[in-house]
Amino acid sequence: MLFLRSALALLVATFLQIVLQQLGNLWGRGVASAVDLLLVVVVWIALASGPGAGQIVGMVAGFLADGLAGGLYGLQAIANTVVGYGAAVVRQRVVLQRGVLILVFAGAALVQQLVVALLQFLLVAEPEVASLPSVLARVVATAALGALLLSLEGRVQSGWRGWQRRRHSRLRLR
């Protein structure tokens, strides 16, 4: 179930990321470069499923992002693996309210950018570091999308529970 959910989430996120990039060609690249849907999925899976799933999904999502982007193949994979592991460990060790989880999404975006920048400084002769506004935009966008995803998940779960309650009460009446 976890595997199916992760695979489906990654597939949908990759598809939407490509659509977003294509829209970026038409409407300007600002939004397209700020949003990283694969990262959002990594953090979401990590929060829900723990460090093992978080880092494996992070690695796969990173390699997918590297496949779409230029530059060294594997930079995003390392960054997303670390983020997947870190987000899950934070969730395990700190008791967080649902609303505060948004900060985990924001922190994950920041850590991902830092890891990529660090690896570029270590490995590339002329590192291309993202500007501060673009980092902030990515942090804000990731947090907003994380909030949206958590909200949707909450509604789906409460809807599912309500449907099950109604079904049970109908069965009892019979």
């Binding site: 990039q21 060609n25 470069s33």
Partner: peptide, 10 residues
């Protein structure tokens, strides 16, 4: 596919 996220490199 045109990569926007990394300054149009590929």
């Amino acid at each position: 596919y045109l990569d926007h996220a990394s300054a149009r490199r590929s």
